[in-house]
Design a protein around this nucleic acid. Structure first.
Length: 129
DNA sequence: CGCCTGACGAAAC
DNA sequence: GGTTTCGCCAGGC
């Protein structure tokens, strides 16, 4: 919480100069990669952190290409506001997502994360580091 | 260049 | 309170 608006600015600052790829996709990737193991977040949370809260869809859209990027993005730690594994169908296998989550200690039931609120991680925390 | 789609979210009905 | 629609923005056709 706290200065959310500033968050976007801080995040952009993280991007090294010369990188004209300040596309929100990159920002999403960066945030997603900062998600701590055993934690999850929502598209809306990331979008909100980036300042594009009105376009949570774009965050998911960015993830669409996340699986093809090199640094490997833990997209399995990103779910919708409901805590549901909405993107599981986009993984290598529909079960890969929950498998990964379970492996990290996250309980998944019926394609939904148990104690989602407790496992929820706010992307703004990386800015507080 | 215009219409449709899309891993969300919140408001409206 | 559950279901439906709109809004967001960008990319694909």
């Amino acid at each position: 919480m706290a200065t959310r608006k500033k968050s976007i600015d801080q995040l952009k600052k993280v991007k090294p100069s010369g990188s004209s790829e300040s596309s929100f996709f990159e920002l999403v990737y960066q945030v997603a990669r900062q998600i701590p193991k055993g934690r999850v977040t929502s598209y809306g949370a990331i979008a909100n952190c980036l300042g594009t809260k009105l376009s949570a869809r774009m965050v998911g859209w960015a993830m669409n290409g996340a699986h093809k990027v090199k640094p490997a993005i833990p997209a399995h730690r990103v779910v919708n506001r409901n805590g549901m594994l909405s993107g599981k169908h986009h993984f290598e296998t529909p079960t890969k997502m929950e498998e990964l989550l379970k492996k990290e200690g996250i309980i998944v039931k019926e394609d939904q994360i148990v104690d989602f609120e407790k496992r929820f991680w706010d992307p703004t925390e990386i800015l507080f580091d």
